[in-house]
Computed example of a mutant assay.
Amino acid sequence: MKKVLFLILTLFLILYGCSNKEEQPEGKPIKVEQAKGKPIKDIEYDGENHLEIAVLGNDKAIEELSKSISYDKYSIDELIKALEGNDAREYDAIIVFKDSFKSVDDDKYSDFFSALQYPVFLVGADNFRAYALYTKGSDINKARDDTAPYVQGFKSNNSNEKSQAWSFDIPEEVDSKIINKYALVNIFDILDSEKSKEEE
């Protein structure tokens, strides 16, 4: 009886270990910081720094916040061209909205995302993990996770800096009409804090 029980337990552990769910790749340690949500009534960005943002995708929330930030909209290929060469644009971050996830979900862009020196934030990525974009051989389907946070951000560590990652969900009490505006204000607060640290 003990042998049968041992065999069943061993078989269970083998099958569980062979699960096809891909985990975040090991290697570079990533510090995950949970962003603190702003009160709903305080839904405007009021940081000390003016922010320059590159945007992939469309969302009216970014337009509503354009008084306190500057942004340029791109397709993924246009963005790659804008960041190349001597006259390359510089940004505080890149924000990718849900309607652009399919266009960036291509292995040919993983080198681009892994080499970026800017933070990249995914808005609406609540069913996959961000490593899908910057890990060779991965994609959104392989990184599926229904417990993923609504907003995920990452910054590469190709220089001497440490990799960074951010993530947060949207509180249930936030009205569905302002979810992305709420997400953006919290992203801008993170960027404002990072920019202030760099200037010290």
Score class of each variant (00 low, 15 high):
50 H>E: 12
162 K>T: 12
37 G>E: 06
80 I>V: 00
175 D>Y: 01
176 S>L: 07
189 D>E: 15
56 L>F: 00
73 K>Q: 11
27 G>C: 04
13 L>C: 15
117 Q>K: 14
144 R>V: 04
114 S>Q: 05
113 F>C: 01
106 D>K: 12
131 Y>W: 15
109 Y>E: 02
134 Y>A: 01
192 D>N: 12
113 F>S: 01
188 F>W: 03
111 D>M: 07
5 L>G: 10
96 V>T: 14
103 S>E: 10
15 L>D: 08
25 P>F: 06
54 A>D: 02
46 D>Q: 10
33 E>T: 05
134 Y>S: 04
121 F>P: 14
200 E>Y: 08
131 Y>P: 02
4 V>T: 14
33 E>W: 11
153 G>Q: 03
158 N>H: 10
42 D>C: 02
112 F>M: 09
142 K>D: 00
51 L>C: 01
200 E>D: 05
31 K>H: 12
114 S>A: 09
109 Y>A: 04
141 N>F: 00
119 P>L: 12
37 G>T: 07
172 E>A: 15
134 Y>N: 07
33 E>R: 06
15 L>K: 14
130 A>F: 08
6 F>G: 10
190 I>E: 08
115 A>D: 13
24 Q>W: 09
200 E>K: 11
187 I>N: 05
146 D>F: 11
147 T>K: 11
149 P>D: 14
35 A>N: 01
169 D>V: 01
180 N>K: 10
147 T>Q: 13
24 Q>P: 07
61 A>G: 06
146 D>G: 05
2 K>S: 10
178 I>R: 02
192 D>S: 06
61 A>H: 04
163 S>A: 15
45 Y>R: 00
115 A>R: 13
33 E>N: 12
